[in-house]
Computed example of a mutant assay.
Amino acid sequence: MNNRWLLPEYIEDVLPEAAWQVEDVRAKLLSLFKSYGYELVIPPHVEYIESLTGIEGDDLNLKTFKLVDQITGRQLGLRADMTPQVARIDAHLLNRMDVTRLCYAGHVVHTLPAGHFSTREPLQVGAEIYGSKNLTADIEIIELMSSALKVAGISEMNVDIGHVGIFRTICELAKASPQIVDQLFTALQTKDLPSIAELTINWEESLKVAVLALPSLFGEAESVLATARLKLPTVPAIQDALETIERVCVHLATIGVRCSVELGELRTGFYHNGLVFTAFAKGWSNPVARGGRYDNIGQQFGRARAATGFSIDLRDILRGLSTPSGKMSILAPDSQEPELRELIAKLRESGEIVRVDISGGSSDELAWDRKIVKSVNGWEVVSK
């Protein structure tokens, strides 16, 4: 049996109408980013593995397909996330001193799907700001993310706000080993309270209570932040983080974006170290966007830079929307008459879809509602 037409698990083709929808929305998103002053970069699909997975934690390492470079013998990787690549471009190639806004749109490849019904070949679209620790940068990124989702077709969403710095500060106060930090990180993502309790069994009681409280600190901003201020250590780093979350939530309310606070939110990735956010929408089982602050991400490339950004999987978003039917077109006869060719060219320049009927008048393969016919007045477009 010939199975050459089969594709690997969680890998799929994008067929004509959906493909045009993807490209149309991608163009609109890049136009939106450009209007905010973001510059487009196009990193390569393949790099040396150290550049793609050199960030703290093994999350990206596990997601990355690896292969051997036939020229150098060194190990290469298929990119699983474009953020490290964009950080490399900012730190090493652009090497600017001031604020830099960069955006991108391209496919990444994962060894395993990120969630239910996810593809292993997401179309990652995102924007990032380098060189600013100011909260206004984070607010701009979240506002841009909200606008991008609306452009993609999601009119209503809820943004969960968290802060990885709270978790990391508690671990620092407890003098936890890197191994314990990584295990706690994983346990918090699944709200595994027994594992959290076991990992912190020898901690000071107040710190144990604090980290066990994180999974339950989610919901409406005002009440969650009030509870957090009572249960979490009153150290400057944590109080500043709570103040940051509060200011972001207040701003989102002014622009009509619903938000919640989730202090156990660590799903965005190992390299985030500050404010993080995840957008959800009705009808999607997975988050529709995620991002946050990842200061010093450029350090592995020799130049640490403050950074914040977000990304979306455009294919996953559009999978949850209805695919528009193909735009109606005009059917033209198969003729090389100069007047007809001139009319066809003008129609195409005006945005019309004109297909030449090469099937001898029996073409029904695509939708068309008008056709070009020859009358006493010359060539003209008439209804089907």
Rank of each mutant, 00 (worst) to 15 (best):
V209S: 08
G126I: 00
L214H: 01
F301D: 01
L135G: 15
L340R: 03
L149P: 01
Y130N: 11
S335Q: 06
E262I: 01
I55Q: 12
V261C: 15
I71M: 10
R319W: 06
Y38F: 15
Y38T: 05
G153R: 07
Q183R: 14
K231Y: 07
S363H: 14
I353M: 10
I71W: 04
I141C: 09
L340I: 03
S260T: 11
V41C: 07
K231Q: 15
F117A: 13
E39N: 11
A281N: 04
M97G: 14
V224S: 07
I55T: 14
S359M: 10
A80K: 00
G291W: 04
H116P: 02
A279F: 01
S329T: 07
V224H: 05
T136P: 01
D334C: 10
R79M: 06
D98Y: 10
R315Q: 08
R96N: 04
D295C: 13
A80I: 00
A345I: 06
R290Q: 12
R348K: 14
G57C: 13
S311D: 03
I49D: 03
T323I: 15
G219E: 01
D59I: 15
F280E: 04
A332E: 03
E121R: 10
L102F: 01
Y10M: 00
F33N: 02
H92W: 00
G351K: 06
L318Y: 07
A332Y: 05
D364I: 13
S362R: 13
D59T: 14
L193Y: 09
N296L: 11
S51M: 03
L184R: 06
L318G: 04
M82Y: 08
R319T: 10
E349K: 14
E39V: 11
K34E: 13
H92L: 10
Q336G: 08
L112F: 12
F270T: 10
Y294K: 02
N2A: 12
E365N: 14
L214S: 01
T200S: 15
A221V: 06
A367I: 06
A307P: 01
